[in-house]
Write a protein that binds this DNA or RNA. Structure first.
Lengths: 104, 104
DNA sequence: TGCATGTATGTCAGTAATGACATATACTTC
DNA sequence: GAAGTATATGTCATTACTGACATACATGCA
């Protein structure tokens, strides 16, 4: 099983709407989870491409290494805000952000 | 002054980083504000195109009319999460979301 | 004018996300 | 195998966001 798939499934272990089963994911819920997985993956890729450690990134956004790790692992307690701010802090442009989101 | 411009400036009345002045916005801060303005505008456009009232949208996302109004006005107390979830609830695909973000 | 509908703004108690910290695991390199 | 570096996981007090509510503003229409 590919890693991206696995994380996607893991990420589904969330507080979902009415139908709690994975199979019952609504289109919106699915899109939302996918979005988060993409941003998480994009963040990790961007960070590594920049040769930056989690500690260094954490400092630049005034957060902590543990939170960066959680961001990249798709932890449900991390907000889209923090995810996006982190990507921007790594020099990601809005256009690149869009590319990450549109990527399939 | 165009409305989009005005809102952008208003949105800058935020809790910013070290340089509090508008002129001192860092590239990331600028990109972040722009992103929020785009999403807010995209939400309003999408909702109106769907012929849905703020009250109806609020019900579909189990929120309130006041919060929807705040979302569309670029209120800083609204999270990206809620903004994105609202767009998804209106049937926006991740690809369309990317288009909104990439739009200049 | 009065009334209905839609949107905007302010407040607030409850809840979710936060950074910090401790600690664990995984690799290197010596 | 100890020591160093990078990442992962769990907990917790503080902060930020939340829905709900009240109310104000705007527009249209009888």
């Amino acid at each position: 099983m590919r890693e991206s798939k696995r994380k996607k499934l893991e990420a589904a272990g969330w507080k979902l709407g009415s139908p709690k089963e994975l199979l019952g994911l609504s289109a919106e819920e699915q899109a939302y989870i996918e979005l988060r997985v993409k941003l998480a993956g994009g963040l990790k890729a961007k960070r590594q491409a920049r040769g930056v450690t989690q500690v260094q990134l954490a400092q630049s956004i005034r957060s902590s290494q543990s939170r960066v790790a959680k961001m990249e692992s798709g932890d449900p307690t991390v907000s889209l805000d923090l995810l996006v701010k982190s990507l921007l802090a790594l020099g990601t442009s809005n256009r690149e952000l869009a590319e990450i989101i549109a990527r399939r």
